[in-house]
Nucleic acid binder design. Structure first.
Lengths: 129, 129
DNA sequence: AATTTATTGCAACTTTGTCGCATTAACAAA
DNA sequence: TTTGTTAATGCGACAAAGTTGCAATAAATT
C-alpha cells in the first residue's frame, strides 16, 4: 500500500494539514510548496496519503480537487456510507468538512456506493463583514 | 441575458437533451458535434442555456462538467434550495437527475446557497448483467 | 433587402493532472 | 556506521478540459 517512507515532503504536507483544520486544494498545495517540491510529487503524495486513509479527497465547486484530514475518523463503521458534507465559502474560498451525516433516501433500482455532498455558501467570517 | 438567438447549433444541442432523458457531459457533446460545431461554441451555448435556466450543470465523479435539462422544473419555488441529487453509474457512466429532494440539516453559522449532491453506484441496467 | 450585433470559427493559450525514466534518498540489515 | 535495495523524487514532456481575442458570419429586426 501507499505510504511506506516518511520523506521530508510527506512530513511537510502532513504538517500543512495538521496546522489548519480545513481542506486544502491541490492547486494551493502545489503553489505553497513550489520551492520545496515538484508538482508531481505533491500529487503523488496526496494520492498515497489518501490510499492510506490519512486524507480523503473531494471535488470543490470549481471542479478542483481538495483534500482534508481524516476519513475513517468520520466514519462509524466501514459498512456505512460516508455522507459527511463539505462546505465551501463562495467569498473567501475556505473549505471544510462538516461533522455530520446526511441521510440519503433509497434510490429505487440503484445501488449507491459513494456520496459526495458539497454545500456552497457564506461562512461566518464572511457573513459578519 | 443568455440566449438571444436560436441558431442551428443551439437547436442541435437542445435536441440532444430532448431526445435523451439523461445528463450529458461537455466532453461527450463536444465529441458528438465535432463535425458540426466548434468546441468553444459548445461550451458557450451550454453556458448561455444554463444562464437562461434551460439547463443546469454539475460536476461528475470524474471532475467533468455535466448538463441536464430543467432546473426550475425541478424546483417548487425559487426560494427553496434545489437539493435534487445526481446519480452516476460507475460501470456504464450513465448520469441522471434523481427526481427527489434531500433534506440538508442546518449548518450553524453558515449560509447555504447551493447544494450539489452526487451519488455514484450501479444503475439497474448494469446490476442485472 | 439592408442593418445591426449576437454568435461562431479559429487558433493560441492556460490550467490541472499524468507519465516514463534517470537519479536520489529512506531505511533495513549487516 | 556502512552498504544495498527500491520507494520516492525531479524533470520534462505530454494530455485533456476549458478559456479567450478577434475577424468573419448569420440571426433577427426594420
Amino acid at each position: 500500500m501507499g505510504v511506506i517512507r516518511i520523506t521530508k515532503s510527506v512530513k511537510a504536507l502532513l504538517n500543512a494539514f495538521a496546522e489548519q483544520e480545513v481542506a486544502l486544494s491541490t492547486v494551493a498545495l502545489v503553489e505553497q510548496f513550489q520551492d520545496h517540491m515538484n508538482r508531481s510529487t505533491v500529487y503523488r503524495i496526496l494520492e498515497r496519503l489518501e490510499d492510506e486513509g490519512i486524507l480523503h479527497s473531494f471535488t470543490g465547486s470549481d471542479g478542483l480537487t481538495w483534500y482534508a484530514l481524516g476519513n475513517k475518523n468520520l466514519l462509524s463503521g466501514k459498512a456505512n456510507l460516508d455522507t459527511h458534507p463539505h462546505f465551501q465559502c463562495k467569498d473567501c474560498g475556505k473549505t471544510e468538512c462538516l461533522p455530520m451525516s446526511v441521510s440519503i433516501p433509497d434510490v429505487s433500482k440503484h445501488t449507491v456506493e459513494s456520496v459526495s455532498l458539497l454545500l456552497v455558501g457564506q461562512c461566518s467570517d464572511c457573513a459578519s463583514v
